[in-house]
């Protein structure tokens, strides 16, 4: 607390810089940069945010622990964004290492493989008990990914075909909705 007060002039200077950066964001928007548009906009916004936090919010003179608390929240927001996008953006890809098709559109071996296979097995053998389903899940976990993943895929191909038909229906419905 014993630090010198920032002068009014310095605050006004920071405010002017913030205005210039705002004008810059708008200028960048007018020049079409395609995919870089988002990157540049976020970088400028972060520069503005940094100025506000360091000067207006006095982060420079703040207790280090308080700074850690705040920056920590930004870190976790980043983890939230990165991991969620990493998931939603890769659902159409084939994970060859684990032999799993990560593809909800075609329905086979997507995320939640276990539940799906168990549902297919249900249809094949009529109604089954809860115990039988759980036993199935256990076997599945035991046999799980490892090296044999690719072969297992082949063995399950006919089952997967059934699922594919279902998934097609589902995606048709989705298309209808979009229209």
């Amino acid at each position: 607390m014993a630090h010198e007060e920032v002068s009014v002039r310095n605050y006004v200077v920071v405010f002017s810089v913030l205005l210039v950066l705002t004008a810059l964001t708008v200028a960048v928007y007018q020049v079409h940069l395609g995919a870089w548009n988002l990157v540049v906009a976020v970088i400028i916004a972060t520069m503005k945010a940094a100025l506000v936090v360091v000067v207006f919010m006095h982060m420079a003179h703040e207790a280090r622990f308080n700074a850690l608390v705040f920056l920590g929240s930004l870190l976790f927001a980043g983890i939230f964004l990165a991991y969620t996008l990493n998931d939603t953006e890769r659902r159409m890809e084939v994970d060859e290492y684990h032999g799993a098709l990560v593809d909800p559109e075609t329905g086979d071996w997507a995320y939640g493989v276990a539940e799906q296979l168990s549902a297919i097995a249900d249809r094949e053998s009529g109604a089954r008990t809860e115990e039988a389903r759980e036993a199935d899940l256990e076997t599945l976990e035991g046999a799980a990914p490892a090296a044999g993943g690719a072969e297992e895929l082949g063995a399950d191909e006919e089952r997967a075909d059934d699922e594919e038909a279902d998934a097609e229906e589902a995606s048709d419905e989705r298309d209808d909705k979009e229209e």
Binding site: N37, L38, A41, A45, K48, V52, F56
Partner: peptide
């Protein structure tokens, strides 16, 4: 109040200025 400003600093380009 500065935090409310901070949020808007990001919302403005992200919502209004998409190429």
């Amino acid at each position: 109040w500065h935090l409310v400003d901070l949020i808007w600093i990001y919302l403005f380009p992200l919502l209004y200025l998409i190429d």
